[in-house]
Structures are given as structure tokens and as C-alpha cells.
């Protein structure tokens, strides 16, 4: 590949952010590419912001995506997608964002107001070249709940053009990497279907 491809996964601890990153980095390995994946631990299970930086290149890069240089933003939560896009997105960025909100301790206690989802998507759209806002709730109720959000979103991004890893690579990586691959692959396919509907 000529140019690096940077994927940023933004979400909340406990959403399966790191698993997403692992699936995509192993998928890049299947293509003989040189992924470097930077994970933020510690907060990952305690409800804080979690970012996974995945840089795909033909040589070893530093683990952090430079500011504004994400090619693909996988937003597992709207507020976190916005927070990440302000720092790491630009006109070249395609953002796929789940609209399922995860309240913060302060929004629950009325110490802060969680902004309306449409305002968040609007703000992300003002920064990114393209935004696909996707509501996972209906599909995930069918498949097995919000625990499967990561597989669903992996399905959603697999239909995008210009991503150096293909749908088949991601499927194969899920098969190799995840426990219970059948349920995850079925949920992946729901993500594919919903994303195709939206991008038409």
C-alpha cells in the first residue's frame, strides 16, 4: 500500500472496543499488511472513554494516529465518536457511528446535559467527509443484545470502499479471534445489511 490507513475506534469501557481492534488488526495480518494497534487499557472496563488506534502501513508506525489523520472512525457511542472526531478526524474521514447512547455519571445525575444525538451527528458531519449514523438497537434485539455491538459495527464498516481490509478478511478474523464466532458472524451480517441500506 502506498499510504498509511488509520482506523480509530472510539467508545466506552465495556463495549468491546479492544476486541474490535484485535479483529481488525488480525484481518490486516491476513492481507500481509503491517498493523500497529494502540490500545488504552485501565479505563477499558470502568466506564471511561476508550480509544483504539489501528494504523495499517507497509512498515512499523508509531501507535498513535496523528491529529486529524483518521481515515475511518468507528464510533461505538455518539458522544465518544464526537470527542474522537474533534481530535483525530478530517475531511478524508469516513465515520460510522452507533446512535445508541451511553449516559455519563454526570448526565445521569443532571450535573451535565448529554447533548441531543442529532446535534452530535451534525457536529461530526461538520468535521468528517462522510458520516453513516446507524441505530443498532433493533438489529441487536434480534441477535443477542448490546454485547454484540462490536460485531454489528464491524459488519457496518466492512461495506465501505477504500478500506484496505475486505469483508472476507474481517469475517475470517472474527472466526479465528472471537469466542462464539457463529453468533458474532450472524450479527456481523446484520451490520452489513443495515449499513448497505443506509449507504444507498
Amino acid at each position: 500500500m502506498k499510504e498509511d490507513y488509520n482506523i480509530l475506534i472510539a467508545g466506552v469501557g465495556g463495549q468491546g472496543n479492544l476486541v474490535c481492534g484485535r479483529v481488525l488488526s488480525e484481518a490486516a495480518r491476513l492481507k500481509d499488511l503491517h498493523p500497529v494497534i494502540g490500545e488504552t487499557f485501565g479505563a477499558s472496563r470502568r466506564g471511561g472513554t476508550v480509544l483504539t488506534h489501528l494504523r495499517i502501513s507497509n512498515h512499523e508506525r508509531g501507535p498513535l494516529i496523528p491529529k486529524g489523520r483518521a481515515n475511518l472512525l468507528l464510533g461505538m457511542e455518539p458522544l465518544e465518536a464526537l470527542r474522537a472526531s474533534i481530535e483525530y478526524a478530517g475531511k478524508q474521514t469516513v465515520a460510522v457511528v452507533s446512535t445508541a447512547r451511553v449516559e455519563t455519571p454526570e448526565s445521569l445525575s443532571d450535573a451535565a446535559e448529554y447533548p441531543p444525538t442529532d446535534k452530535i451527528i451534525e457536529a461530526i458531519s461538520s468535521i468528517c467527509g462522510e458520516v453513516i449514523a446507524i441505530d443498532p438497537v433493533e438489529a441487536l434485539e434480534k441477535s443477542g443484545g448490546l454485547r454484540l455491538l462490536n460485531s454489528y459495527l464491524l459488519g457496518a464498516i466492512s461495506v465501505l470502499k477504500g478500506v484496505p481490509i475486505s469483508k472476507d478478511d474481517i469475517r475470517e478474523s472474527i472466526r479465528r479471534t472471537l469466542q462464539n464466532p457463529d453468533l458474532n458472524l450472524a450479527t456481523f451480517d446484520l451490520g452489513v445489511t443495515d449499513a448497505l441500506k443506509l449507504s444507498r
Binding site: E80, I86, T104, E106, A112, Y114, P115, A123, I127
Partner: peptide, 16 residues
């Protein structure tokens, strides 16, 4: 970005 940043609220860590 400045106006987008105004929408943000913090997400402090919390117990499981």
C-alpha cells in the same frame, strides 16, 4: 471544532 467541542461533556471513570 471549537463549536463541536462545546457539546462535549466529561466521562469520568466509575465502579462496575
Amino acid at each position: 471544532r471549537e463549536s463541536a467541542r462545546k457539546l462535549l461533556i466529561r466521562r469520568p471513570l466509575t465502579f462496575c
